[in-house]
């Protein structure tokens, strides 16, 4: 028991220290994440033309369940999840590939209306993955938690590093401080497009999520611990890194009960 507690403590400490950014030099405006910095991050891929294509990120929340965005799985394609991934085009030696067996999108999700919210889905994997240094469960916030404005957060993913650009090959991270609902829903920001069931982060015109990051996590530090507070959802059609158009996430703390119920009944 004590040994386990010591191990858990070491993991948390390691996670904290390694995540202090050196520089944010270039997600859009991000930098390559250190290998196994974000072990709950997954790559969601679909099969087309005889090969697999990355479409979204996601968060491993149980050894056989992944949390992602509902819009990521709107199309009836064959999907798989890759955990322990770092370089999409190389064999890192740490990957585990597992098929998606079942998709449960939020019942109120409307694929023609992303700004209504409910952009969240759970994927049951065909088998449980093996947890290790490179594959961990994401820590979720307590139900109802609201982030303070300007909380320190990181978006991670393999999304485009430039509007209309190429996917990143290695996992990227970008520092996106949170933007409170009252600011984000003001008329000079997103206005009424943003709902209280969402989280905003970034909006400096430099750093943002971009295509390929959807479904992936927004890791925010609260009380010295990172938790996944957001599921990457949408940006402006004018471009990914538009000033005063923060990246918008589904607020995880609004869906804790729903997720627990889905997992319990499937």
């Amino acid at each position: 028991m004590l040994r386990f507690l010591v191990f858990a403590s070491l993991v948390l400490c390691g996670h904290s220290t390694e995540d202090v950014p050196e520089t944010d030099a270039r997600v859009v405006g991000g930098a390559e994440a250190r290998r196994n910095s974000w072990p709950s991050q997954i790559s969601l891929q679909y099969q087309y033309g005889g090969s697999w294509h990355h479409t979204c990120g996601g968060t491993l929340i149980r050894s056989n369940w992944v949390m992602t965005a509902a819009h990521c799985v709107d199309s009836p394609m064959t999907y798989r999840v890759v955990v322990g991934e770092h370089n999409l085009s190389q064999n890192d030696g740490t990957e585990q590939y597992v098929n998606v067996q079942k998709i449960v999108s939020h019942p109120y999700w409307n694929k023609n209306n992303v700004v209504a919210g409910y952009d969240i889905a759970l994927l049951r994997l065909a088998k449980s993955v093996t947890l290790n240094n490179y594959v961990q469960l994401g820590v979720l916030p307590r139900e109802g938690t609201i982030l303070a404005n300007n909380s320190p957060c990181y978006i991670t993913g393999w999304g485009r590093t430039r509007t209309n650009g190429e996917l990143a090959q290695t996992l990227q991270q970008a520092y996106l401080p949170s933007v409170s609902y009252s600011i984000c829903s003001s008329s000079s920001y997103w206005g009424s497009s943003v709902k209280n069931t969402m989280v905003c982060a970034g909006g400096d015109g430099v750093r943002s999520g971009c295509q390929g990051d959807s479904g992936g996590p927004l890791h925010c530090m609260v009380n010295g611990q990172y938790a996944v507070h957001g599921v990457t959802s949408f940006v402006s059609s004018m471009g990914c890194n538009v000033a005063r158009k923060p990246t918008v996430f589904t607020r995880v703390s609004a869906y804790i009960s729903w997720m627990n119920n889905v997992i319990a009944s499937n």
Binding site: C56, G159, L167, G212, S214, V235, S236, V248
Partner: peptide, 12 residues
């Protein structure tokens, strides 16, 4: 006048 929210899955 084009302005809308765009989901961030990698588009086909």
């Amino acid at each position: 006048t084009v302005f809308e929210a765009v989901p961030m899955s990698m588009p086909p």
